Every structure is written in structure tokens, then in C-alpha cells.
Simulated scan of single mutants.
Amino acid sequence: MALRKVNARDIIIEASDGADPATWAEIGGLTSVTINRSENEETADTTDFDSQGAYSQDIMQRGATIEMEGQLRKDDTDGSLDPGQAQCETNAAEDRVGVASHATYRFRYPTDTEWTVWEATTTLGEQGGGTNEKTTFNCTLTKCGPSTTEAVA
């Protein structure tokens, strides 16, 4: 077995349409992806006199986010968005509040045999650019509940 460095650009992130069975759309046009597996983590300080000056804590809540940045992609004939970007926009729609704000996403690298699956809320970021730039696409997924896995078909 040879261990190799993993290209960040090779990550595959897909958004579900919420149907059963789900139709998955890969999110295209990405230029940066950051997975933060400790976002929204909460701890309780358990240090006491018996700790003899050494800090102690318990993790009370775990959380995670994926921040995606990229370039907005639209079909030059009909103006339709990249299917994955469109699903992110649907999942972040103004009327998607409460439990309706939850959507399903999955991600992996090409050599992985399982997808990591998250139920997450979707927050769209700023869109724009300067004179000599392409329009940006920004989206943050905030995990809700535990991660699950599914086999790569």
C-alpha cells in the first residue's frame, strides 16, 4: 500500500433532491472546499480542585460545516444553473425554514468506497466579482445530527 497525498480539487460533493429514491446532483464549479469537523462544538469545563491545576473538559456537542467557494455556472443557451448549484439554491430558499430547511448532501474522494452523508442546512453566501473576475458561488452546509455512510455504487 502506497500512501499518497490527496488533491483537494478531487472532492466530490452532491446534493439530493429529497425524493425517494434520491436524485443526486454534483456541485460543479468549485474552487475551494473546507470541511470543519469541529464547527459548533461545545464543551463543558470539568476542571476541579482534584485536577491539580490541569485543565479538563467534556465535549457536550459535536458539529461540522462544509464551506464551498466557486464560480457560478449557467447554461449559455437557457440560463439554467449547474444542477448541483441549483439544488443548493433550492435547499436555501426563503420558504425553507424549520425542519424544511434540512437537506441531504454526500461527499467523498474518488478512492473512497463510502460516501459520508449529512443532513444539513444550506446557507448561500455572497455572489459577485470585480471587473476581471467571474461571478462567485458560495455555500455553507451546517451538519444537523450524526453523519451516516452509504456505499459508492
Rank of each mutant, 00 (worst) to 15 (best):
M60D: 12
T47D: 12
I35N: 01
E41Y: 03
R62E: 14
M68L: 14
T121H: 12
Y109L: 10
E26I: 14
W118P: 03
S38Y: 04
A2F: 09
S147A: 15
P110I: 12
R96L: 13
T142R: 12
T136G: 08
G98S: 09
P83G: 11
R37Q: 11
T140R: 15
Q127M: 13
R62I: 12
I12C: 11
N40K: 02
T90R: 02
A8L: 02
Q71K: 06
D78F: 01
D78I: 03
P146A: 15
W24G: 14
A86Q: 07
G79M: 04
T65M: 08
A22F: 00
K74F: 08
S56Q: 06
S16G: 09
G129P: 13
K134C: 06
L30S: 06
E42P: 00
R108L: 11
L124A: 09
A86L: 05
D50A: 12
G145Y: 11
R37H: 09
A64D: 12
T121Q: 07
A92G: 07
M1Y: 05
I11N: 04
A100Q: 09
N138W: 00
T149F: 02
T23W: 01
D50F: 08
T31S: 07
F49W: 10
R9L: 14
E119N: 05
G79T: 12
F49N: 05
W24K: 04
E42Q: 14
T77N: 07
E94M: 14
T46E: 14
Q85C: 14
Q71P: 00
F107C: 10
T111Q: 04
K134H: 14
S32C: 03
N40V: 05
E133S: 14
V117T: 07
E69G: 15
D45A: 11
T122H: 04
V97L: 10
G70L: 04
E133I: 10
E39W: 00
A15E: 10
D112E: 05
S147L: 06
A100S: 08
A92M: 04
